[in-house]
Design a protein around this nucleic acid. Structure first.
Length: 639
RNA sequence: GCUGCCGUAGCUCAGGGGUAGAGCACUCCCUUGGUAAGGGAGAGGCCGGGAGUUCAAUUCUCCCCGGCAGCACCA
């Protein structure tokens, strides 16, 4: 007998080997009809699977959140069958679920085109209408391998080899078609429903290895019902509207062009956003005890050889050679420059910690396929800083950085963030002892700060472990921005030292940290996060004053002058256009505040305020307006 | 970098072997109008670059450059 505990807390005894379906049927036949799977101790199991262990028990219905996973996975299987039926000779590989849908990777000489989608979707519809039962069988390893080998499914053979010894090799059938699969599945293909859509084709490497075959991946989305699918498609459209590349053009912030792939041409308004970010960060760092420096953009290759970058990243560096045969590299990072500044002049332990900050523009020859608007560029500006300190100071300094990080993100409205801890990668410099110490020190600091973090094994920098700060934006996407990296290696490689209280030379520890990460990228994130509707302090053009008739122009200029005197960014629109036209135009370009000035305002010394995104208008005296707008436009750290 | 798709006016896009079209934006004229597009006229293009096929290429083929989606990469 096994004991199953139902969600309401009731525990019931059943014969071992009973299936979820039988249990459901024992409760009511309509329940059995609606059930698609069961969950035992949180693990999803096929509805017809004999249960031999007790535990927390739950019946999963098709409309449940948990069933979505099954719908999507089964949809992937249905798609794979449709593809193999329509395109004989295509090999199947893997087809997992992902956020909002699924994909399946196929191997075929000829790639699929978007035009094939309609055909495949139609065939999928037939398979779903056929409503074949999903049935499972367990095979021996060799039997299964032989079977797939006979079918010419070489990738499946490789997959079977990768299944851990202790696990069964399971095959799921839907009608005659079958696939190697861990399961679980819905009872039958009909339960998949028709709320699915194939979305895109793309290449993907077999097993994520760029040295292996390129497969054709078809992405699809699937939902419990048509309404959810439609809503998802609308969400995608909405996300597209806030694409920073599109808004960058619409709001006249920046552009890219062929001659400078991966480098930004910042327009006046975009650059104002950029400098607003720098001004803010400069104030925050000043308060936190950093000193700002500037290091050369180009340095001799010898320095990069010494740092280890030449060996590891040479192919991603911009190199120049001069008439006298010297080889220079555009800096891909600021650390070596900062170490040179630290080394210049003898440092005492009394000087530590030394915190050098730089808004350093770095160049990296990123692979062409990686470029993506402002998010991934070949030349970008880091809010970089390096803290040189003693081992004893590490914890305190890390905690300071951590707290600074949190307060900064808060100022930008990012409250939801995650922290990842990345430890030693395979390719690295420095001995294991040093890595042990560095990892321990960094971990100790986060633990002491009391914030939770998740492990990200093997993802550290080549010179040390790191913390990564991941922000969640307004539509739930994650962006890794800040990073703190513990470095026990580079200072030694560069022979940096300080004189300790014992009069001996000691190698300082170097903490690398950036908070925006890349200013370009952070600007892009802010554009998408706010969908272009910036809070007033970030808006590059804060107020446009629109006149209704030209007799109001003089007063409009006076209002502008007074707002500018408070440091605000203001335009005056006195064009001979209707007020509707002006309001529309400035709303489209996302100016947060429109002041409308007609004869009424001139006579009463008032302004009429219209905020972006609202049809409401409010009137107030000029003095009141200037006071409230300039307060709102003050950066959060100066309020 | 890899796979696929794309590149026509500032933007969004139509067209198609005989050297080009719309809407918006732009310039000028009329209109001074109270909260998301007033009317009229005009200007604007080496159809991404190079080679090939052809009597003829923006259109077809190949190469290159750039972009998009995904993969790989990301100090």
């Amino acid at each position: 007998m096994i004991t199953l505990t139902f969600p309401d807390g009731a525990a019931r005894e059943y014969e071992a080997g009973i299936s979820g379906y039988d249990i459901a049927k024992g409760i009511s036949s309509s329940l059995a009809k609606k059930a698609v799977a069961v969950k035992v101790d949180g693990v999803m199991v096929d509805l017809v699977e004999p249960l031999n262990e007790g535990g927390a028990f739950e019946i999963v219905m098709r409309d449940d959140e948990d069933a979505l996973e099954l719908i999507r996975h089964d949809c992937a299987h249905v798609m794979a069958e449709a593809v193999q039926e329509l395109f004989p000779g295509t090999q199947v590989t893997i087809g997992p679920t992902i956020e909002n849908g699924f994909y399946y990777d196929f191997y075929r000489d000829e790639p699929f085109s978007l035009d094939d989608f309609a055909k495949i979707e139609k065939k999928m519809g037939h398979i779903i209408d056929r409503n074949d039962k999903f049935t499972k069988r367990v095979m021996s390893r060799n039997e299964a391998k032989q079977m797939f080998a006979d079918m010419g499914e070489d990738f499946k053979v490789e997959l079977i080899d990768a299944i851990p010894e202790e696990d069964d090799v399971k095959i799921y059938n839907q009608g005659k078609w079958f696939d190697l699969c861990r399961g679980p599945h819905l009872p039958s293909t009909g339960k998949v429903g028709k709320a699915f859509k194939l979305m895109k084709v793309a290449g993907a490497y077999w097993r994520g290895d760029s040295d292996r075959e390129v497969l054709t991946r078809i992405y699809g989305t699937a939902w419990a019902n048509q309404k959810d699918l439609d809503e998802y498609l609308v969400r995608l459209e909405e996300a597209e509207k806030r694409d920073h590349r599109r808004l960058g053009r619409e709001m006249d912030l920046f552009h890219f062009q062929e001659e400078a792939p991966g480098s930004v041409f910042w327009h006046p308004k975009g650059w104002r956003l950029f400098t607003t970010l720098i001004d803010y960060m400069r104030r925050m760092q000043e308060k936190a005890g950093y000193t700002e420096v500037n290091s050369p953009d180009m340095m001799d290759r010898a320095l990069w050889e010494q740092s280890g970058h030449w060996e590891k990243f040479r192919e991603n560096m911009f190199i120049t050679e001069t008439e006298d045969d010297r080889v220079f590299a555009l800096k891909p990072m600021n650390c070596p420059g900062h170490v040179q500044i630290f080394k210049n002049g003898l440092k005492s332990y009394r000087d530590l910690p030394v915190k050098l900050a730089e808004f350093g523009k770095v160049h990296r020859y990123e692979p062409s396929g990686a470029l993506h608007g402002l998010m991934r560029v070949r030349s970008f500006t880091q809010d970089d800083a390096h803290i040189f300190c003693t081992r004893e100071q590490i914890t305190e300094e890390c905690i300071k950085v951590h707290n600074l990080m949190l307060s900064i993100y808060k100022d930008f409205g990012f409250e939801d963030l995650r922290i990842k801890f990345s430890d030693r990668p395979e390719k690295r410099v420095g001995s294991d002892d040093v890595w042990d110490d560095a990892e321990k020190a960094l971990k100790h600091a986060v633990d002491k700060a009391g914030d939770e973090y998740e492990l990200n094994p093997g993802e550290g920098a080549f010179y040390g472990p790191k913390l990564e700060y991941v922000l969640r934006d307004a539509i739930g996407r994650d962006w890794q921005c800040g990073t703190v990296q513990m470095d026990f290696n580079l200072p030694g490689r560069f022979d940096a030292f300080y004189i300790g209280s014992d009069s001996d030379k000691h190698t300082p520890v170097m903490i690398h940290r950036a908070m925006f990460g890349s200013l370009e990228r952070f600007a892009g994130i802010l554009i998408e996060h706010h969908a272009g509707h910036f809070p007033l302090w970030l808006a590059p053009l804060q107020v446009v004053i629109c006149t209704i008739k030209s007799e109001a122009d003089d007063y409009a200029y006076k209002v502008a002058e007074q707002l500018r005197a408070k440091g605000m960014h203001v335009d005056v629109d006195t064009r001979n256009e209707k007020i509707n036209y002006k309001v529309r135009e400035h709303s489209v370009s996302k100016v947060p505040v429109i002041l409308v000035i007609g004869m009424r305002e001139v006579e009463e010394e008032t302004v009429n305020i219209r905020r972006l995104g609202s049809r409401d208008q409010t009137s107030m005296t000029l003095a009141e307006a200037i006071d409230s707008l300039s307060k709102e436009a003050t950066p959060p750290d100066l309020r």
